[in-house]
Design a binder for these strands. Sequence first.
DNA 1: GGCGCGATGAAACTATGATTACAAAATCGG
DNA 2: CCGATTTTGTAATCATAGTTTCATCGCGCC
Lengths: 287, 287
Amino acid sequence: MAETAQQRIRTVASQLTRAERQLADAILENYPMSGLGPIARLAEKAGVSAPTVVRMVQKLGFSGFPEFQSALREELEAQISNPIAKHDSWSEAAPQGHILNRFTDAVIANIRQTLAHADPAEFDAVTALLADSRRAVYVAGGRITHALAEYLHLHLQVIRPGVRLIRTTSNAWPHDLLDLARGDVVVLYDVRRYENSTLKLAEIAAERGAKCVLFTDQWQSPIARHAAYSFNCRIEAPSAWDSTTAMLLLSETLIAAVQERAWERTRDRMKALEAMFDATRIFRKFV
Amino acid sequence: MAETAQQRIRTVASQLTRAERQLADAILENYPMSGLGPIARLAEKAGVSAPTVVRMVQKLGFSGFPEFQSALREELEAQISNPIAKHDSWSEAAPQGHILNRFTDAVIANIRQTLAHADPAEFDAVTALLADSRRAVYVAGGRITHALAEYLHLHLQVIRPGVRLIRTTSNAWPHDLLDLARGDVVVLYDVRRYENSTLKLAEIAAERGAKCVLFTDQWQSPIARHAAYSFNCRIEAPSAWDSTTAMLLLSETLIAAVQERAWERTRDRMKALEAMFDATRIFRKFV
DNA sequence: GGCGCGATGAAACTATGATTACAAAATCGG
DNA sequence: CCGATTTTGTAATCATAGTTTCATCGCGCC
């Protein structure tokens, strides 16, 4: 019985039903505060009904909601009176030095610094470029960053026409540049161990009058000199490799910004896409 | 109304009667915990009657005990909410409501919640599985998540032998499962608009005795039932799409953990890789 | 010491919150 | 695709917590 409600929830997490899991998430979301109010408020917050709450706390081994609540209060009291337990780790369940906490610390620091250095005017300008459907968009990444390029490409494709992914890892990439016209946009990802082929691509694109947008690391790829806009993302991590999380964040934000700017068109394209998905039955019908 | 209950009590302290002062002392003694329980318990603790409590909170300006209690809860919540989150502006240069700040806010919240839900024991178990080079590893993602799968695959490949990437977006994926043996590990990514082919893959893998590791969203893919381990990542974003940043973070952390565990081997493999890169002149010599 | 007034708690009452029963919905297996 | 089973929410019920009333108590004052 020395077990906290949080632990109990985790223990039974696997045997919970859909609504119960939803509820468990809501409780854990800002634990234990949300459990201290009346049952109806908790139910509403979790988007389930009050009986579901009762059933779930009974599954956790409490006789009913009041007992559960009083357990929460006791835990909270113990925690508050013990200042060592101050909330400064990401995964409460993991020890302080666990890699889950160490790595997340580093990534948050990366995000903070990346955002601090990002120029909103530049960001808005890039958004405008990408939202302009008269310009074709080419997206390219290197060995490590190809996954990011692919991700950006996938989403931009839904938002607007004329988006192409270039694989610089294959040596057929010059084929992809045949249609490149003055004023087109080339988005490049390049992080350290900067790649020759990506640099070549940027040189050619710049020469042909395309606007290059570069996502690079804090040490800046040599491509920067050819780029009209460049975002420097911190990528340091407590690992033999770097973390591209901040870079993904910036890319996703860019996607969101472009989409916001071109929402009318995007919505139509999404509808068309949905219709095609329905026709192909790729996805499960519900949920 | 920005006044805390504590301050209000102090303000009216002088005009309180004997029983009320007794009660006030009890509340302030371990504020605000004692006010969170039922009125009877507080009354008992203070050695007064329930009506006294009601009269007193009304003197404080609350309509009744429930309102008083809910004010206490709010105060407490504001007090313990993680200070790390209280970063009101990520990009100082951008206005408060700029998408750079809005999106980052959402992603940080996702990361925090994802980490809060992650079970370190489960994480460590998955690390061990992936570090065990006797087990082959298969990595698969769907339409949206393929980029993540590719990223994990790329890095795991450097750390250990026997890693394969499966494209569930192509219908030739069953070919990739021909060699799947009991005890192998299948890492799956599946977020909403859960895909049928990924589910099928999971079913087959589970049937063949492979261990499934699932990265999914907070609503949980139906694959969860076949998975030995599953990580639920928050993916909500102020956008028509979701954000997979938290998922990438967790994946990168996993990569770092596996690498840490198998560092000797990883180092040798990295050296070999470097040698090959040198031979191919893919990368720029310096910087 | 008795009178009057505010303070207080017991008890009745009311409202609200928790629980249960049941029916609808979703899911699963064939 | 259909019937069985589980899950879930709605509505009714029950319990408990909060409030009000009112009689009592203590205290100061005459």
